[in-house]
Amino acid sequence: MLSIARDRFVGPGQISPEGRYVMKVDLINGFLGAGKTTFLINLLETKNPSEKVAVLVNEFGTVGIDGDLLTGHDANVVELPNGCICCTLKADLRNQIREIAEKFKPDRLYIEPTGAATIKNLLGILESLSLEKYIENIRVILVLDAGTFMENMEKNRGFVETQLESAQIILVNKCDKVSPEQLGLIREIIRKTNCSGQVLLTSFGQVLHRDLSEPAVLPETALNNVLSGNIGATGKHLHDLPLKEYEQFSVQSSNLFDVDRLRKFFGRLSDNWYGSVDRAKGIFRVADSQWVRFDLVSREVSESFLEKEYTFSKLIVIGTDLSKKLLNTEFMNCQKG
Rank of each mutant, 00 (worst) to 15 (best):
M1E: 09
L2H: 14
D7R: 14
V10Y: 08
V10S: 11
G11M: 09
I15E: 12
P17F: 04
E18Y: 06
R20K: 15
R20W: 09
K24H: 07
V25E: 06
D26F: 08
L27G: 00
G33W: 09
A34W: 01
G35M: 06
I41G: 05
I41Q: 14
L43K: 14
L44C: 07
E45D: 15
K47C: 02
E51T: 15
N58W: 09
N58Q: 08
G61L: 04
L69G: 05
G72E: 05
D74K: 13
A75K: 01
V77N: 01
G83I: 12
G83P: 11
C86S: 12
T88R: 05
A91F: 09
L93S: 09
N95Y: 06
N95R: 11
I97G: 02
I97K: 03
R98V: 13
K103P: 01
D107C: 00
R108N: 06
L109T: 02
L109S: 02
Y110E: 05
L126C: 00
S128A: 09
S130A: 09
E132A: 01
K133P: 01
Y134W: 06
I141C: 07
I141P: 03
L142S: 07
T148N: 13
M150L: 12
E154W: 10
E154G: 07
R157M: 02
G158C: 05
V160W: 00
E161C: 08
E161L: 08
Q163A: 04
I170G: 11
V172T: 13
V172W: 09
C175N: 10
D176H: 02
D176Y: 04
E181G: 03
E181P: 03
L183V: 11
L185P: 03
L185Q: 13
I186M: 10
I186C: 09
I186V: 13
I186Y: 12
E188R: 15
E188W: 13
I189C: 09
K192W: 05
C195M: 14
C195Y: 15
S196G: 11
G197H: 14
Q198W: 11
Q198S: 13
V199P: 12
L200N: 13
L200V: 15
L200E: 14
L200I: 15
L201D: 15
T202L: 12
T202W: 12
Q206S: 08
L208V: 04
H209M: 11
R210W: 02
E214R: 13
E214L: 11
P219F: 00
L223H: 01
L223V: 10
N225S: 02
N230P: 05
G232L: 03
G235Q: 02
G235F: 05
L243I: 15
K244N: 11
E245V: 15
Q248K: 03
S250W: 12
S253H: 08
S254T: 12
L256N: 08
F257K: 04
V259S: 09
D260V: 07
D260Q: 11
K264F: 08
K264G: 10
F266W: 12
R268D: 11
N272I: 04
G275W: 00
S276W: 14
F284V: 04
F284P: 02
R285H: 08
V286D: 02
D288G: 08
W291L: 03
V292Y: 01
R293E: 13
F294R: 05
S302K: 14
K308Y: 07
Y310R: 12
K314N: 04
I318G: 12
T320N: 08
T320D: 04
K325T: 03
L326Q: 05
F331M: 02
K336S: 12
